[in-house]
Amino acid sequence: MAAAVEEIRAEKLLKDLANVWKELNQTETNYAVVRACSMTLLVVTTGDGDEQDLAGTLGDLMHSHPCRYIVLRLVDTPEPEFAARVFAHCQLAFGRRQQLCCEQIEFTATRDRIPDFYAVALGLTVADLPVLLWVRDARLLAEPELAQILPLARPLIVDSAQFVDAKSGLADLEKRRQAGWRIKDLAWSRLTVWRETIAQMFETSGCRNLVNRVDRIEVKGRFGPTGSDVQYLAAWLSERVPGAAITATGSGVQRIRLVAGGQRLEVNDAGEALVATTLDGMVTRVPDPVRSDASLLEEELSILGPDPIYDATLRAVARLTH
């Protein structure tokens, strides 16, 4: 159902979508087809070979956040290219008698056709529902062409774990935040389990009174240069306990150690779990399975309004790295 360059208009694609639904309803005899949509998710990606991966992510995501997906795949071809196709993702809804379906419009374009994409995409977002933009390949953020499509949505989803230079990448995110974008970072969602474990440590009777006595914090990563994860945790902790001295090294968080009133509290990575050690050596194991992009997106999409703790952390990252 690919369309030629000159034919790509929003009305035409919406008509194609209507036909997809008509065909689905006519051909599907076993299960009722239900179209579901709670928002528009624009996805910008590059490269070949990740079609399956992306399809899997969007398919998983539709369980909790059924969307109209508008995917822009940027390609490097010698000739200008701009093509589009429409289709539906369908899954049986949790053992029921219905097929839950979400619609997808997928564009393939060379960078010079980004303005064309922008013009068409403006007419494709679903009225009265939130619109979000996920820049799946973080390298694109550095490309000036991308600036042309950023105005399509204020919530901007990235994964700063992909940043080669985390310091400048996060500084750039903070600038965008100040310019009015609502930044959502999958790398930040990955840290929820660490942050929640720390919070829970201070809920125990023995540790509750140590909160204001935290004076030293160490965030240690496994690998070389300081990554966005370690920077985020260090910034978050500095925001939460402003008086504490913080050291942060590496990327791929391995350990957080807090010293409070001479007592040592630790959270360590142990593969698919975190191990929290509080007073008197009491140990708690917290499951930390590897999270898929869909699971991380699910967390981010569930917060459509402001996220003050993340915003303050991103601000603090910029402050700490200066």
Binding site: A199, Q200, F202, R208, N212, R240, I303
Partner: peptide, 20 residues
Amino acid sequence: MAQANPFQDPLRFERRVPSC
């Protein structure tokens, strides 16, 4: 009185169950 826990994030963390 117990001090407020500054590490909590009600937007992302589920409700706190106290030690019990």
